[in-house]
Design a protein around this nucleic acid. Structure first.
Lengths: 222, 222
DNA sequence: TTAAGAGTGTCACAAATGTTACACTTTCAG
DNA sequence: CTGAAAGTGTAACATTTGTGACACTCTTAA
């Protein structure tokens, strides 16, 4: 029934039969959601473990002025808010909204705790997920602490560059990127234009061609 | 021997005898360090669990231009880099340096894993610590995503204000604050000056008096 | 096929912050 | 007590980014 869970980090190392047995053993439910639906608001208590089965979600912070900072996109079969289920302040750090129709598996905290303690491998996986989450957030801070937009662009491109290639494929609009960078959209466009003038990159529709890798690295290197 | 550990989050709920038994049961060592010593560099692999016993540490990110962003200060008996011991990328996210002389308890990862699995309470505590760490980092992102220095100051003061009081005691210099905020020191001083002109606050040596709480909150509220 | 919506490039101007410099004060070790 | 080091207030100026506006392109659903 939960074929997709086999490749989920939480159940890594378990086979289908074991996964189904574990899940059947605890209370759970399936929740369907529609595109653009808001599934949770920042500050809301996290009382259930959620594993995305189908569709796409995003987490974004909204500040008091209404500006949004997109923190991450979530694809199946990832857990949602994994690092916020336990710990001293278990509330959603972001608004969670749907980028498409989809569905997710829901397990209440009490039952999830029981699931964790019933299998050492799952517990170990969960520990890795939460650690990975902290590491992701830490990298996010590194990224946000870059001062200039140019640095952010350079860092983003170099991190999404597959070794050997000089082309970065974009899965987001400039608008989406601007939100991730925490900058205004026209400011991003302007800086992109400047970097094109400098023959650093060529920014096309859905991909960016690196024209001068060394100079691009030098932006971060000095 | 490790009296201070009784109040450590990792050993919460255990008594002295149990703690000593657990620790004696695994390989461990004590490491002394001197003020200003750098204990680990960003990017270095985390191979040991470290619990601060005495002294004070700080973690700071250094960007390529040499600017530093102080992420946190660590006091005993906290764990160091707890969320970076497991997970996909177990490397230090910050430079770890000493703010005073001190010493810490060191347990190698393998032995620490053994310690975790030998007591359910400790494992549970550790899960809470790592979750708490992720939550801390998440709040840090919230903080860094404030656009203006004024917002950052207001947020910082309101968060350090004890209920009922109108005075915030500072345990850091303006220079230290500027590093935490990720802004230039004179810029911080200028903004403080502006807020004093506006009768919002009175900034004294080691403490800040809130003169107009409502207006201060309004900075974040609109 | 076409109209609507989303995304993009660009501009002029405003606002915020960084940079560098210097004088002054405070702290603290010797 | 004193000198050095660290911290603070402030200024002029340079840079960077945000804002709001508009025209244009692309995509897509009716």
């Amino acid at each position: 029934m939960f074929e997709v869970l086999k490749s989920s980090p939480l159940f890594s190392g378990l086979d289908n039969i074991e996964i189904n047995a574990l899940i059947d053993n605890v209370l759970h439910q399936i929740r369907n959601f529609a595109n653009k639906e808001v599934l949770a608001y920042s500050g809301e208590k996290v009382e259930r473990a959620m594993i995305l089965l189908e569709g796409k979600l995003q987490g974004e912070m909204i500040d008091f002025a209404g500006n949004s900072l997109k923190i991450e996109e979530i694809d199946p079969p990832q857990m949602v808010a994994a690092a916020f289920l336990y710990g001293p302040q278990s509330v959603f750090p972001v608004n969670l909204s749907a980028l498409s129709d989809g569905k997710m598996l829901i397990i209440f905290k009490k039952d999830f705790t029981q699931l964790l303690s019933s299998d050492h491998r799952v517990l170990n996986n969960y520990l890795n997920i939460v650690s990975g989450k902290a590491q992701f957030l830490s990298r996010k801070i590194t990224f946000l602490s870059f001062k200039t937009i140019k640095e952010k662009i350079a860092y983003y491109l170099l991190n999404h560059l597959k070794t050997g290639s000089l082309v970065v494929t974009l899965y987001q609009s400039q608008k989406g990127l601007a939100e991730m960078f925490g900058v205004a959209r026209p400011s991003l466009a302007r800086t992109i234009g400047e970097m094109e003038d400098e023959q650093l990159i060529r920014w096309e529709r859905n991909q960016v061609v690196i024209l001068n890798l060394k100079l691009l690295q030098a932006i971060l290197g000095k």
